[in-house]
Amino acid sequence: KWTITVQGEEAIKWAIKVAEARNLDYTVHIDGDQAHITIE
């Protein structure tokens, strides 16, 4: 299990796209213009 933090709307969209493309189980916690994405 690991967490990445991305900043900015484009980076958030990209990170989610990558997680979905790899069929990963993930949760997103949005904090202002940052998102913390935890991959199970």
Rank of each mutant, 00 (worst) to 15 (best):
W2K: 04
I30W: 12
H29L: 13
G32Q: 05
E9K: 10
R22D: 05
R22W: 15
V28K: 01
A11Q: 09
N23H: 12
K1W: 12
A19L: 15
W2S: 03
A15H: 06
H36V: 14
A15P: 02
L24C: 14
E9R: 09
A15K: 01
V6C: 12
I16Y: 03
E9S: 12
T27R: 07
I30H: 06
G32Y: 03
D33F: 07
I4T: 02
N23Q: 10
I30A: 04
E10Y: 08
K17I: 10
Q7A: 08
T3I: 12
E20L: 10
E40T: 14
K13G: 03
T27I: 08
Q34W: 15
W2N: 03
V28G: 00
E9P: 10
D25V: 14
A21L: 11
Q7S: 12
T5A: 04
A21H: 08
D25W: 12
K1A: 10
K17R: 09
E9I: 13
V18R: 04
T38C: 10
T3L: 10
I12Q: 02
V28F: 04
R22V: 11
T5K: 04
Q34A: 09
V6F: 05
K13D: 06
I16F: 02
V28M: 08
I39H: 01
H36G: 03
Q7V: 13
I12A: 02
K17Q: 12
W2Q: 03
N23C: 15
E20R: 09
I4Q: 02
H29I: 15
Y26T: 01
H29K: 11
E10Q: 09
A19T: 03
I4N: 00
L24F: 09
L24D: 02
W2M: 08
E9M: 12
R22Q: 12
T27H: 05
V28S: 01
K17N: 09
D25T: 14
K13T: 04
W2I: 11
W2E: 03
E9W: 13
H36A: 07
T27D: 04
G32K: 05
Q7D: 05
I30Y: 14
A21F: 07
R22A: 13
I16Q: 04
T38H: 08
D31T: 09
E20W: 08
T38W: 05
H29G: 03
E20V: 10
E40F: 15
D33I: 09
I39M: 07
L24M: 06
R22K: 12
V28I: 14
G32C: 11
D31K: 10
I4F: 11
E20K: 11
D31H: 11
V18S: 06
V18Q: 12
N23F: 08
A11L: 12
V6E: 00
D25L: 14
H29P: 01
Q34V: 15
W2H: 07
Q7N: 07
I4H: 02
K13V: 06
K17F: 10
L24A: 05
V18P: 00
T27M: 06
K1V: 08
T27G: 02
G8Y: 05
E9T: 12
K1T: 10
Q7G: 04
I37K: 00
I30M: 12
V6M: 04
N23T: 03
E9H: 10
Q34T: 14
I16A: 01
E40S: 14
H36L: 12
V6W: 02
Y26K: 00
A21E: 12
L24W: 15
I39L: 08
Q7F: 14
Y26I: 11
E20C: 15
D33L: 07
T38M: 06
D33R: 07
K13N: 07
A15R: 00
E40W: 15
A21R: 06
G8A: 03
N23V: 03
T5W: 08
R22S: 15
Q34S: 10
D31Y: 11
A11F: 10
W2D: 02
I4Y: 08
D33S: 09
R22E: 08
A35W: 11
V18T: 07
I12Y: 07
D25K: 15
I4A: 01
I16P: 02
I39W: 07
T3R: 07
D31M: 12
T38D: 03
G32H: 05
E40P: 04
Q34R: 14
Q7I: 13
T38P: 00
V18L: 13
A11S: 07
H36S: 11
D33M: 08
T27A: 06
D31C: 14
A19G: 02
Q34D: 06
T5C: 13
A21I: 08
V18I: 13
L24N: 03
L24S: 03
K17S: 14
H29A: 09
H29V: 15
K1I: 07
D33G: 07
A21W: 10
E10S: 08
E9Q: 11
Y26P: 00
T3H: 09
T38S: 06
V6P: 00
E20D: 06
A35N: 02
Q34G: 07
W2A: 04
H36D: 04
G32S: 04
A11Y: 08
V18K: 04
I16K: 03
K13Y: 10
H29S: 11
A19E: 01
A35S: 03
N23Y: 07
L24G: 04
D31Q: 09
G32E: 04
H29D: 08
I16T: 04
N23K: 11
E40R: 14
W14M: 13
I39F: 14
V18M: 14
E20I: 13
I37N: 00
H36M: 12
T3Y: 11
I16L: 07
I12N: 01
T3A: 05
W2G: 03
A21Q: 10
W2R: 05
T38E: 05
